[in-house]
Design a protein around this nucleic acid. Structure first.
Length: 446
RNA sequence: GCGGCCAUAGCUCAGUUGGUUAGAGCACAAGAUUGUGGAUCUUGGGGUCGCGGGUUCGAGCCCCGUUGGCCGCCCCA
């Protein structure tokens, strides 16, 4: 029994696990590249203030934080957004626009583990900086969908729920709520799906109960699920029955943004993945416009991905004023979904060539070819120690190799190597100086 | 931070009302097999029964604590 255990919530990746993880990363990276996003990376350890500045001091309870030997308060990164804001902010004036960046990294949160959540996890992050219009959302939501579709997930498997914190703010403001109350209501809206009416308890404790008529209007707004419903709500907002209407020009601009966003996604053939759903508001205070979250269609898993616009954050973290939109996909819930849908393919990790070697004399001859084949890019295996032929053939078959090269005394005496096609179970003798070419031909064949 | 369930070999698990030296399958390794296939047969390595304490003549089994895991709550950037 091992004396030392893995720290709670941390994961180890044995080779077969890492193969699967790499598969995720490979397809995500491919999707981002095809959308023209540039990959970056950054430190795992950051100043604690980078996170407390954004989220308040309470956040420290959720962080792996400590004081380093230089007396600095530091924390393992719990997310990428503040880091990438710093990177972009520091060179904002020198970066070509639009700034489209992505990364894949490991993150750490000091939390209790649950299904789909651990203390360390990986995230794919994609962000666009410098673009205030919905063109940025179009790119990002399309990329998000592609990051899922690349695995064979369809609209039967997941959808992206899209909402708008701007309209929420306009609406709640028009209902006469101040900023603190608006945030309180949004907190309730965020939880409404899960708790129903109980979601308003926290609000009631802080501000007193909501009037029934007010609550009914909020719940009505929460049920907005189509462009037509948005249009209608905007019409009502511009000319409210009572109270203060939101600025008409802003509302019209917002409606135009919605039309542009949904129209573009439809033109890409992605409308079937997108659900308008004002029940999504995201808990975070810093989101400023469109927000979206991806869920499995069955609603069994926690969120697969989340994102939105955060136009004020770069400036708040000390950079220039720079509009931004971004999203992140976590690897844990996403992996669960792939597993549920049987979309984690069997990975062939076998070599191209397995060498069967007679004895120590033949081994030296084989080594020359093995190294040459490996240098030529083939994946070549051989038994490290002298083993009976029967065992070697068994090992060759089990390895998954398509080709066996047989270095026996008889062959080498004739200046040849036997090349066995392990699939066809056929053999040919090949002169030693033509081994690489013969292997290449066989592997390239049908 | 809180609650429920759980912990026996690398994995999946059995283990009688508490009773001798803790078992099976799979996996791994060796042999059958010194030149041809994933099979089969034989054999083997591998366990502080998570850890610590208690009850008992005797604990894998009962009790307490602790660590870890799963699930949920809080939270979820």
């Amino acid at each position: 029994m091992a004396t030392f255990q893995t720290l709670p919530g941390f994961r180890e990746f044995y080779p077969e696990d890492l193969v699967r993880r790499n598969h995720l990363f490979r397809l995500w990276r491919q999707a981002a590249n095809s959308f023209g996003f540039a990959e970056y990376d950054a430190p795992v350890l950051e100043p604690l203030e980078l996170y407390t500045a954004k989220s308040g001091p309470e956040i420290e309870g959720q962080l792996f934080s400590f004081t380093d030997k230089g007396g600095r308060q530091v924390a393992l990164r719990p997310e990428m957004t503040p880091t990438v804001c710093r990177l972009v902010g520091a060179k904002a004036s020198a970066l070509k626009r639009p700034i489209k960046w992505f990364s894949i990294g490991e993150f750490y949160r000091y939390e209790r583990m649950q299904k789909g959540r651990g203390r360390c996890f990986h995230q794919f992050n994609a962000d666009i900086f410098g673009e205030p219009g919905p063109e940025a959302e179009i790119e990002l939501i399309a990329l998000l969908i592609q990051c899922f579709g690349a695995f064979g997930l369809t609209e039967e498997d997941f959808h992206v729920r899209l909402s708008d914190r701007n309209l929420w703010f306009y609406y709640l403001g028009a209902l006469g709520l101040d900023d603190a109350r608006i945030r309180g209501v949004l907190g309730a809206v965020d939880r409404y799906e899960k708790y129903g009416d109980d979601a308003f308890k926290a609000y009631a404790e802080q501000f007193g109960g909501l009037e029934e008529s007010l609550k009914a209007r909020i719940l009505g707004f929460l049920k907005i699920n189509s462009l037509a419903a948005i249009e209608q709500a905007i019409g009502e907002l511009a000319a409210p029955a009572g109270g203060v209407g939101a600025p008409a020009d802003k509302l019209q601009a917002r409606l135009a943004d919605w039309k542009k966003l949904l129209g573009a996604l439809d033109a890409m053939g992605l409308a079937r993945f997108v659900t308008v759903d004002f029940g999504v508001v995201r808990g975070l205070a810093y989101y400023t416009g469109f927000v979206f979250e991806a869920f499995d269609r069955k609603g069994e898993l926690r969120a697969l991905a989340g994102g939105g616009r955060y136009d004020d954050l770069v400036e708040k973290l000390g950079g220039p004023a720079l509009p931004a939109v971004g999203f992140a996909i976590g690897d844990m819930t996403f992996g669960l979904l792939l597993e549920q849908r049987g979309l984690t393919p069997k990975f062939v990790t076998g070599p191209d060539v397995y060498c069967v070697i007679g004895g120590e004399a033949e081994r030296l001859a084989a080594f020359r070819d093995i190294h040459a084949l490996r240098s030529a890019g083939f994946r070549v295996e051989y038994p490290l120690k002298e083993v009976a032929f029967g065992k070697q053939f068994k090992a060759a078959a089990e390895s998954g190799a398509k080709v066996a090269l047989i270095y026996g005394g008889d062959e080498l005496a004739k200046g040849v190597v036997k090349l066995r096609d392990l699939t066809q179970r056929s053999e040919v003798e090949v002169p030693r100086d033509q081994v690489a070419a013969a292997v290449r031909d066989l592997l390239a064949g049908p």
